[in-house]
Nucleic acid binder design. Structure first.
Lengths: 140, 140
DNA sequence: GTATATGCAAAGGGTTTGCACGGTT
DNA sequence: AACCGTGCAAACCCTTTGCATATAC
């Protein structure tokens, strides 16, 4: 079903703001609400930040977008049909790498079988120290 | 080395507030800054929230405490010598389970060998749906 | 026409900062 | 005595909420 159908199906209305926010999320990938606002305002300057927040909530509710927490800042949104990926965030340089989730599959299966836990591995970043920073004696 | 020595070694001073905050972290486990404040104020009511924040930063800097992000709220602090564990956070019921990190070891090794990434698996929670919530048809 | 969505402004959590006073070294 | 640490208040960032107006249905 297309995005308009999805909104209708759940009793939501189709509005220009929702179209713009959805487009911004799809184009930007890993965008914060602020960044989404800026993008949306290029086409429609009067759109408000609170509308972006409310719209993201709706779009997430109907399964068109998701968010992930990469670090201490605001969450980032991306479209649901992006390939699922894991974010590796380095605590020294704050760099973010996106890698395929396949590397985590055995881990996810173990959590499923041993804990009964259905993991959304993309939702929270994995923190640590990246290769480049490890090679430096002390990156502090 | 004891905690006072650790502070001295890095040029920090030993103060009653730092003693109280460290004690609170050790006793509470997974405490937010607010919760730590409340505990500290039982013994010393004039201690300020900003002191708690500044103290946690110092204690973390000298390796006496760490923090983890369990969900959307504030971070939680615990002493470094707690057994390393993973937090499983359920997005339906918001429940938190702590499990041994051993289940993740193959995953951590894969990240190390394939990406050169040294993972701090305890720092960010793993999100998903817990066993209890999966057994309910629709937990929304 | 009616209910939902929006813009705006204000309030709300959590965290940080500036500054003068007080305490540790 | 010198400097770091603290209390207090204000500022800050991110997010939510109340309300009147505008808009999709």
């Amino acid at each position: 079903m297309d995005w308009e159908g999805r909104l209708h199906a759940q009793g939501y209305r189709v509005t220009p703001q929702r179209a713009l926010v959805l487009a911004a999320v799809n184009e930007l990938a890993h965008a914060t609400p602020e960044e989404i606002l800026v993008r949306v305002q290029r086409q429609s300057p009067r759109v408000n930040l609170s509308t972006v927040y409310r719209t993201l909530e709706v779009l997430e509710g109907v399964g068109l977008v998701t968010h992930a927490h990469l670090g201490h800042g605001p969450p980032t949104y991306h479209s649901v049909d992006d390939n699922m990926h894991i974010h590796l965030v380095c605590r020294r340089c704050d760099g973010v790498e996106s890698i395929s989730e396949s590397i985590a599959r055995p881990f996810l299966e173990a959590l499923d079988q041993q804990q009964g836990f259905a993991t959304d591995i993309g939702h929270m970043a994995v923190h640590g120290v990246c290769r480049a920073c490890r090679e430096v004696p002390d990156g502090r």
